[in-house]
Write a protein that binds this DNA or RNA. Structure first.
Lengths: 168, 168
DNA sequence: TCACTTTGCTTCGAATTCGAAGCATGGGGG
DNA sequence: CCCCCATGCTTCGAATTCGAAGCAAAGTGA
């Protein structure tokens, strides 16, 4: 399965602009949003996402694996962040009734308050950092482009490395 | 300077798609590219960027601040990564001749070899992860959109927190 | 020249992330 | 029922990142 490739197809000017622009924009954007959340809400983007997902879910609770599924980090990362949020009183853990192995994270009233308090500023930061710099037409095109890329990547990328099989 | 905001302007469906799509795409993309570089070249994206920038620069050398300027991390982060790369033999440090305070990072022959060896696969990963999923028209539009966003953010965001002035 | 500030870099401790390994429960196939 | 593997989560150590604090050289103004 050695793949010897011929002459590499280097990026032309437009492709390079798209790629480097994407890299730098996502980096800058992440920093500003992170900073805003930190200053106003005292939480990180990851924590905001966790709380948001919990709050959006019908039962206001999700198990660790579901949280990790399509979110930022690895399973151990979720364990860590949920522990932080639990210490801060923004969620609590519950054992799943039907499966002893599962642990459910449940958003607390306090967590909901933090979310309500930070959400408007967070949205404003997203507008100020990205959406306001674009025309409505560009926003629409960006949405379509990101949909295409996201769907493509979802099919291609394995989020987590495959689990090491016991034997061997 | 307390800004009391009225009813927050929530994101409409398209804006939400643009934003969440952007977040998830950049995350997935970062992971795949990172993994490819790690497996093939044994280096991280950050290290690739550093080597690439050094190699692109006219004198094949840059001082730490210039490296940190618009790159990934804080000053201390650059110190750390440059130390790693120096240990790996991919660059060496030199004192700047004209300013005793500055430290120059200079890419080595070995570093150049790693770059040449990894670059084609890296570009392929970028194509496979992003560009191939888009039409040429979409790539061009993405480039323009990212240019706009990048320029906007550059003007808005302060990369590093302001330096603490010594006396109160 | 002398104080004082600025600038460039490094060191330090804290926080976060990851993957590997470990533990416990669940789910078959015999 | 029992063995074995799959699944869910946590713990561990390593790597990376950050900001604050510190040190040294360079610049500035009197």
């Amino acid at each position: 399965m050695v793949r010897r490739m011929g002459e590499p197809r280097w990026l032309d000017e437009t492709e390079l602009r798209a790629w480097t622009g994407f890299l730098e924009t996502s980096d800058l954007l992440h920093r500003t949003v992170e900073r805003q959340l930190r200053e106003v809400g005292g939480i990180t983007t990851v924590q905001y996402d966790i709380l948001h997902r919990l709050n959006e879910s019908p039962e206001k609770r999700l198990c660790m694996t579901d949280l990790a599924e399509r979110l930022v980090s690895s399973r151990s990362g979720i364990t860590y962040q949920v522990a932080q949020l639990e210490k801060a009183g923004l969620l609590r853990r519950e054992d799943a009734p039907d499966d002893e192995r599962r642990v459910l994270a449940v958003i607390t009233e306090e967590g909901r308050r933090v979310l309500e308090r930070t959400a408007p500023g967070h949205v404003e930061a997203v507008r100020a950092g990205l959406l306001d710099a674009l025309t409505p037409d560009q926003v629409a095109r960006l949405a379509d482009i990101m949909d295409a890329a996201r769907a493509h990547l979802r099919g291609t990328v394995e989020l987590h490395p495959p689990r090491r099989t016991r034997s061997r």
